[in-house]
Design a protein around this nucleic acid. Structure first.
Ligand SMILES: [Mn+2]
Ligand SMILES: [Mn+2]
Ligand SMILES: [Zn+2]
Ligand SMILES: [Zn+2]
Lengths: 148, 148
DNA sequence: TACAATATTGTAACCATTACAATTTTATCT
DNA sequence: AGATAAAATTGTAATGGTTACAATATTGTA
């Protein structure tokens, strides 16, 4: 089953009409797990849907958020990002390249005193720092500076 | 030592000039650990500083973020909130009353494979749901509905 | 095909945040 | 104290992501 059919199935399973835009947008998220912004999604779909409006992107994302096919990533305060990854996982945000990467995280706060009696529906673990690739770049440029 | 003097000390320790606005703003955060927005901070300080500008609030907060006297809470995608709480802790966001409460959380991701070689500078654990008080309100109104 | 419900579009507005130049305050030196 | 320079604060305007809303197009059903 290709990704378009998969997206269609996922939408149907959540009783969301699998319109062409919804299917392609969800398929885009599934095949591009880089936590894109609404703007990036819009730009990516524009060639295929020349009349696409950004409002449709937001509407579609809102719909999918409602039924939990997509989750919101607010680690970058500048703009919201979206993730079709359903499995529980944490997010790391690199301050240099601004990329967001996944990592394994499955925190359990059921035993937490302060939260007893609370109903928890979403969980996000956000780490911020510098990724390996950027650290290497920084080290390299520092060495070059020393050499001069 | 009162909170103003404490705020002054904290600023000095971070080599940030303890100007009157900075001292009062930090003192406000220390005495109001409710994770206020920039707007709320501005409104709270306005009576004391009638000429206060919102730019100053943002400037002051940015300065304190730089030296880590304050941390950013991005759990509510609508607006950024600020926290002078330095100790490691998690945040719970109630979708109904929009209050953010603290809870004990000290995740350790040093052994995480995906992050080996990464430099982690910030850690945020965000939980979203419905707080105890709001759940009780909802239950009560549901009972009343039944009764009618 | 006709109809009603739903989805999509285009435009304008909203609003938190930022840019920036002008003004004021502060620290330092004579 | 007065002069000077650096830093902080202010006011205004702009930015940009997001939302409101009415008009248009598409879809499902009979
Ligand atoms: Mn992810
Ligand atoms: Mn807190
Ligand atoms: Zn990076
Ligand atoms: Zn609540």
């Amino acid at each position: 089953m290709n990704v378009l059919e998969k997206a269609r199935q996922m939408l149907k399973a959540k009783a969301v009409r699998p319109t062409i835009i919804r299917v392609r947008l969800l398929a885009y998220l599934l095949t591009h797990p880089v936590h894109p912004t609404a703007e990036q999604i819009y730009q990516a779909l524009l060639p295929e849907f020349p009349t696409l409006s950004k409002t449709s992107v937001y509407n579609t994302l809102d719909k999918m958020l409602e039924v939990k096919l997509v989750r919101l990533i607010t680690i970058d305060e500048k703009e919201t990002r979206y993730d079709a990854g359903t499995a529980v996982h944490g997010h790391f945000f690199c301050k240099f390249c601004r990329k967001i990467t996944d990592f394994a995280a499955n925190p359990d706060y059921t035993g937490c005193q302060e939260l007893s009696g609370y109903e928890i529906t979403e969980c996000n673990v956000y780490l911020t720092g510098i990724c390996k690739a950027c650290l290497q770049k920084i080290n390299k440029s520092q060495e070059e500076e020393k050499a001069v």
